[in-house]
Design a protein around this nucleic acid. Structure first.
Lengths: 333, 333
DNA sequence: CTGTTAGCGCCTTCAG
DNA sequence: CTGAAGGCGCTAACAG
């Protein structure tokens, strides 16, 4: 690995000059620039990013914390953030927190230790206080899909309550009155918000929101199956089932079919998130669009603008409103 | 951000001693260790990984190149590799090459510039020569899902030819004789290997492998639909359709259903990869397991063993054999 | 426009 | 067991 020093020798200039042609901030005469460039090419020189970072206190990389590295939801998020930043020569360092307080904490500390220029966090397990402290430090931090009081400027969220409302409203508009609901873990903010919206829609429509029509799942496919079994057994009158995410909706569809129910003829199903595979399902899943990509893009823009002083002429929005994606799993009662 | 120097002052010891308690290589008396540790705690000291890397010439991070950051295939790969390495305190730096020669090349250069201790590459677009040169350099490199002549020790591959063979064989065993095939882009090695296996199975079974029963797709869902349309229109006698990956199988299923064909009653379909969503499809997709997770885990182990001298008592395998995953989209003719 | 000179924060011999 | 000192490869004033 050639170093900057060897390049300077080969080019017959000082080490600082080489640095200058690399960074292009300062003016360098064309002749010396040429000399340096050919020297670099001959040696196959490649700057050592580590050393650059140490000296400049700038790593040109932003840390991204997600819950998992797999799954379409996070895949879309990572992909969007990476694309947005790469355009400006910035890189992403991705870590997974696995929705575990310690692991999320460790992951964030790791990103800090790597001296990322900024952090984009999809943190689910870590406390509000921790996030608040973090945001107050010198390190620029933004939070995705979680609203922390007092940190509004750093949070990018979707209106989950509204999403829950829209899903229920869609079912109600199709004439459904007996509506089941499979929620996510209630301690999760997004899960409880979606459920709150669901309840509000029912109430506004004059439908009693029965607690026992609500099954608490865990956002995984299997709990969708469990929820379906439970609800069908106890409340066979249910004509529409709303699931707090697409994975559970998929599980519910499978369970329903196994129980001999046709979708949507016998039972309508609505999901949430609109992940990629929701249109692979049969019938194609009617769901609520969760604009995670927009969140990711916004977060990336925020960083570009506030950390890297990139001129971006898009406004930065913090609240995103979900929409109904009409497909084939919801029909008239 | 406290530095090691401040810690040494607070603890009343030398800077070298602090370094020693951090790394734990050398013996340090219990008393001084305690002093240092409390000093570190009080200052909230966090080592600067960048500086550590520069000084030690070791980053404790391995670079991972994938084609995309989204999609279940790469999600599974990233996830597995990360888990395997994290167990030993190593980190992953992920980059995406987007199946584009320049972008893959840039991504690899980026990983090199970040001074990763090793590289795990799922490189599709870059040339064999480039990979060979890379492997010959000091930087440890392994290649996933691609066999490069002369680099066998660095390659972790699945026997795609065998997989293609198995898929065809499965259909043949169910009595199918008119078999359509939607391949991946033929310039891709894995795609052509799968097709070669397909042909061999047909030949061995005494079935003529008709070229016009083969539609060249691009591994995306939409080309599965196109392929289905094409084959159905020109060869309505086909009773089984084999697709070179699950995405295209999904597209084919949709198209088949829109054309009024029931699966598997009217048409059997077999996929390849066994990605997560293949069991979400309806009917659940019969497919060929592509042990990408095993590849990832093996690659990670190779790195742990050869780069980090971790004692791992599993043998390291380089060739993985796919298997048929029987589900519900293939039935007797 | 270019060279000189301090560091960036840490690891690692080498003495003691 | 501990301290002193040099250096990892590069950037960023400061002179010239």
């Amino acid at each position: 690995m050639a170093t900057i020093y060897e390049v300077s020798e080969a080019a017959g200039v000082s080490l600082a000059t080489v640095s200058r042609v690399m960074n292009g901030n300062t003016k360098v005469s064309d002749r010396t620039r040429k000399k340096v460039e050919t020297a670099m090419a001959e040696l196959g020189y490649q700057p050592n990013a580590i050393a650059q970072s140490l000296a400049s206190n700038r790593t040109n990389s932003v840390g991204l914390l997600v819950s998992e590295l797999h799954g379409s939801y996070f895949g879309d998020l990572m992909s969007t953030v990476e694309q947005a930043l790469k355009q400006y020569g910035k890189h992403v360092i991705i870590t997974a927190g696995h929705v575990d307080e310690k692991r999320e904490h460790d992951a964030i500390e790791f990103l800090k230790s790597r001296r990322c220029d900024a952090l984009i966090l999809h943190a689910e397990a870590v406390s509000d206080e921790y996030l608040t402290t973090l945001c107050k430090s010198d390190l620029p931090v933004v939070v995705i899909n979680r609203k922390v009081d007092g940190l509004d400027d750093h949070c990018f969220v979707v209106d989950n309550e509204k999403g829950g409302y829209l899903a229920a409203q869609a079912a109600i508009q199709q004439g459904h009155k007996e509506i089941g609901y499979i929620s996510g873990p209630k301690f999760k903010k997004d899960a409880s918000d979606r459920l709150a919206g669901h309840r509000r829609a029912l109430t506004e429509a004059g439908i009693e929101a029965k607690d026992d029509h609500i099954f608490e799942g865990d956002f995984h496919e299997s709990s969708g199956q469990e929820g379906m079994h439970y609800l069908k057994q106890h409340f066979p009158d249910i004509t529409a089932l709303i699931c707090a995410n697409d994975e559970m909706a998929s599980g519910a569809m499978t369970a329903a079919r196994e129980a001999g129910l046709e979708i949507p003829q016998h039972l309508s199903i609505v999901g949430f998130d609109n992940v990629l595979f929701s249109r692979y399902l049969y019938p194609k899943l009617t769901t609520i669009n969760n604009p995670i990509q927009s969140l990711g893009e916004m977060a990336a823009r925020w960083v570009l603008k506030n950390v890297y002083d990139t001129k971006i002429n898009h406004a930065i929005e913090h609240l995103f409103v979900p929409e109904v994606v009409e497909r084939h799993s919801l029909s008239k009662r």
